[in-house]
Amino acid sequence: MNLYTRTGDKGQTSLIGGRVSKDDIRVEAYGTIDELNSFVGIAAAEAAKHEPLRDMAELLIRIQHELFDCGSDLAYARPGAPLKVTAEASARLEAEIDRASGQAPEITRFILPGGSALSAQLHVCRTICRRAERRVVTLAAEHPVNPETLTYLNRLSDYFFAAARAANALLGESDIEYERSAEVFRKREKE
């Protein structure tokens, strides 16, 4: 099988249901998710090097599969196509956010990306995820999209933030507080 098809040489690409320009907002949206998936792969490989983070590495690989589902849902150019991203995926992320948040010290100030290499990589994932979310919002203003994809991406960026902080804590690294930050996060009352 040849990897090159020559069908995109003039700036067009195929979607499920038609051809569009390679700079079409739909291609931009799922292309940004593909970019995010690559960075998640880097973070998963880094997490797998550390015994206390092996569970995180496995979760990151599951997230990669779910990102493929997001891209697949966005690649459909016609309504009524079968969708893969469901509310259950976002609910699982919420549980993982709670778990990761419980592994890190309470936060009171804004923090800078960094500490450990893995934490910095997860912050890169967070920012790319936010960009992917913005691209999907733009797409949704013009075309129908699976609303669960937007919910999932919103939760996922929160997960990356919580995971970055948990990675630092589990590796014995401190978060780097933004030095000019006031105390902006309030302690939550016990329910």
Rank of each mutant, 00 (worst) to 15 (best):
R165A: 08
L150K: 10
A48Q: 14
R165K: 12
E148S: 13
A29S: 13
R186P: 04
T149K: 05
V184C: 08
H50W: 12
K49W: 06
L59K: 14
E106N: 08
R134P: 03
L53C: 09
I63Y: 03
L153D: 02
V136W: 01
F68Q: 11
V27K: 00
E66T: 14
E96Y: 03
A45F: 03
A169D: 06
K187F: 07
R131V: 12
R99V: 06
E28L: 11
L15D: 05
G41S: 10
K49S: 12
G31K: 04
E106K: 12
S181W: 04
R135P: 01
K190F: 11
F110G: 11
E133W: 06
L60F: 07
I128G: 05
E177N: 13
I176T: 15
K187T: 08
P105H: 06
F110Q: 11
I176E: 15
E179I: 09
E35L: 09
V40E: 05
E46T: 11
E46S: 11
P113H: 05
D98S: 08
F161S: 03
E133I: 05
A81Y: 01
T13D: 00
D24F: 00
T149H: 05
D98G: 05
H143S: 15
A81C: 11
R130G: 08
A167Y: 07
Y152H: 03
A182M: 13
Q121W: 07
D9Y: 03
H65N: 15
Y76H: 15
G114Y: 01
E58Y: 09
E133N: 10
A140I: 08
P113Y: 05
F110L: 11
Q12C: 02
L60R: 04
S116C: 10
A48F: 09
A91H: 08
T127Y: 13
Y76K: 09
R78D: 06
Q103L: 15
R109Q: 14
L93E: 01
P147W: 04
T108E: 13
A163E: 04
D9K: 03
E148T: 09
L67T: 01
R155N: 07
R180E: 14
G17I: 09
Y4K: 15
D9Q: 06
T151Y: 11
M56Q: 15
R78F: 06
T32Y: 03
A164R: 02
K10M: 09
T151V: 15
A162N: 11
E94T: 07
R134A: 06
S72G: 06
T7K: 13
Q103T: 07
S174Y: 05
G17M: 10
P113N: 08
D24I: 00
R130D: 12
E66N: 14
A43D: 10
D158R: 14
I128S: 05
L67A: 03
C129V: 08
E142V: 09
K84R: 15
